Amino acid sequence: MEHVDVAVIGGGQSGLATAHALRRQGLKPVILEASAQTSGSWPRYYDSLTLFSPAGRSSLPGLPFGGDPDRYPHRDEVIAYLLRYADRLDADIRTGVRVREVATADEGFTLTLEEGCQLSARSVVAASGTFGRPYLPALPGLEQYAGAILHAAEYRAPRSFAGLGVPPAGGWGRVVVVGAGNSAVQIAAELAAHARVTLAARHPARFTRQHVLGRDLHWWLRVTGIDVLPVGRFLRTPPTQLVIDDGRYRAAVTAGAPDVRPVFSGIEGTKVTWTDGSTEEVDTIVLATGYRPDLDYLRPLGTLDADGHPQHREGVSTTHSGLAYVGLEWQRSLSSNSLRGVGRDATRIAGRLAGRLAARLRAR
C-alpha cells in the first residue's frame, strides 16, 4: 500500500490552497481530484456567473489573479486561474481519482479509491466542497409535481431548458425559481427575459449594494475586519444570505421580472397553489436552494451528524485527530469558502497538521 503524509481530497480552490500551505510547512500532500482537471466545481456553474468580489481581492496565496484588479472575473477566467495555479504548485496532483471511503488505521487513515485500490495517509484534509450534494428541501407537494424540476447545479443558461418539455415557441413557459440567495435572484432575472418567472421563497431576498461610497463591498469587509472575524463556530445556522447587487437585480424585481411571492402551499400535477389560494400551471421549477457538504466518503468514520455535516471546530475535526476540513461554508469566517478567504483557513489547518505530525515524530 502507498503511504503519504497528507491526502487532500478535492482539487478545487480549497484543495489547491491547502496543498500550497502544506508545502510551505515542509509536508508532501497528495491531491486526489475526482474530475479530469483541478478547477473544482467552477466548470459546472451557470454560464453567466461572475465573481462577487473583484479580481484584486480574489486570489489564492502565492499567485495574484492578474489583470484589472477592479473587474469581476467571469466563470471561465476563474477556471483558467485555478488551472494556472495548479500548474505552478509543487505538489502531487492526481485527477480522475475518486475517494470512495476513508477509514481509521494504526498510522492514521486508509483511503479506498473508486477503482478499489487503497493508500494510507497520516492526515486527511477534506476539501471536496459542496457542489456534489445539492440541497433538495421538503416543499409542499413537490414530490407530486409532474413538470420539469432541476436544481441550480443543473442550470447553465436559458437554452438549457430545451429538451425539458418547456415550450420554446412564443417564450419559455411558466417558471418558478425557489430561493432567495444570489444564485436564485440571478437565475430568475436571467430567465425572466425568456419566460414569465416567479421568485418564490420563505423569506424575501435581502439586497446589499456592491459598491458603497465608491468602494467595492469587499473592500469594506476587509478594512473593517468583518471578513475574517472567527464567528463560524457560533453560528449553528448560517445567517440569511445577502444578494450582492450592482443595481440590476433589485431593479428587475421592482419591475416584476421576476415577480416575488411566498413559496407555494401545494402542487397537484403541474398546477401550483399559492398561499393566497390562487392556482396556475407551471412548466418548470428551479431549486436554487443551496448545497450541503459533499462528504459521504467520511461516513465510515462516524464523524458526520445526521444531516451529513462534519463535526469540527474551525476546520479541525472534533472526532478524529489528523482529520481536517477546508472550504466549508462559515468554517471559521464569512469568507471561508471563497477564493478571497480559503487561503487563510488553509494556512491555519496546515499549521495544525504539521504540528501534530512533528509531535508524533518526537514521541517516537
Score class of each variant (00 low, 15 high):
Arg196Gln: 08
Arg196Asp: 13
Arg196Val: 13
Arg196Met: 06
Val197Met: 02
Val197Asn: 00
Val197Gly: 00
Thr198Asp: 10
Thr198Val: 12
Leu199His: 01
Leu199Arg: 01
Leu199Pro: 02
Leu199Glu: 00
Leu199Asn: 09
Leu199Ala: 06
Leu199Lys: 01
Leu199Ile: 01
Ala200Phe: 00
Ala200Asp: 01
Ala201His: 07
Ala201Asp: 04
Arg202Leu: 09
Arg202Ser: 12
Arg202Lys: 09
Arg202Gly: 08
Arg202Glu: 01
His203Asp: 08
His203Ile: 10
His203Arg: 14
His203Asn: 07
Pro204Lys: 06
Pro204Cys: 03
Pro204Met: 05
Pro204Glu: 02
Ala205His: 00
Ala205Gly: 09
Ala205Gln: 01
Ala205Asp: 12
Ala205Leu: 01
Arg206His: 09
Arg206Thr: 10
Arg206Leu: 15
Arg206Asn: 00
Arg206Gly: 04
Phe207Arg: 02
Phe207Thr: 03
Phe207Leu: 07
Phe207Tyr: 13
Phe207Pro: 10
Thr208Cys: 14
Thr208Trp: 14
Thr208Gln: 14
Thr208Ser: 15
Arg209Gln: 09
Arg209His: 10
Arg209Gly: 15
Arg209Ile: 07
Arg209Cys: 14
Arg209Glu: 15
Gln210Lys: 10
Gln210Asn: 08
Gln210Thr: 08
Gln210Arg: 10
His211Ala: 14
Val212Cys: 11
Val212Lys: 08
Val212His: 06
Leu213His: 04
Leu213Glu: 03
Leu213Ile: 00
Leu213Cys: 04
Gly214Pro: 12
Gly214Ile: 08
Gly214Lys: 06
Gly214Phe: 11
Arg215Gly: 03
Arg215Pro: 03
Arg215Thr: 13
Asp216Pro: 07
Leu217Asp: 05
Leu217Gly: 12
Leu217Thr: 04
Leu217Ala: 11
His218Thr: 07
His218Gln: 03
His218Phe: 09
His218Asn: 04
His218Tyr: 07
Trp219Ile: 13
Trp220Asn: 04
Trp220Val: 05
Trp220His: 12
Trp220Ser: 03
Trp220Cys: 01
Trp220Pro: 07
Trp220Lys: 01
Leu221Ile: 05
Arg222Trp: 07
Arg222Phe: 02
Arg222Thr: 15
Val223Asn: 13
Val223His: 15
Val223Cys: 14
Val223Gln: 15
Val223Glu: 13
Val223Tyr: 14
Val223Leu: 14
Thr224Pro: 12
Thr224Met: 13
Thr224Cys: 13
Gly225Val: 06
Gly225Thr: 06
Ile226Phe: 12
Ile226Lys: 09
Ile226Cys: 10
Ile226Tyr: 13
Asp227Thr: 12
Asp227Lys: 15
Asp227His: 14
Asp227Gly: 09
Asp227Val: 14
Val228Gly: 09
Val228His: 14
Val228Tyr: 10
Leu229Thr: 11
Leu229Val: 14
Leu229Gly: 04
Leu229Ser: 02
Pro230Gln: 06
Pro230Cys: 05
Pro230His: 11
Pro230Glu: 05
Pro230Ile: 03
Val231Cys: 05
Val231Leu: 15
Val231Glu: 04
Val231Ser: 12
Val231Phe: 10
Gly232Val: 05
Gly232Lys: 08
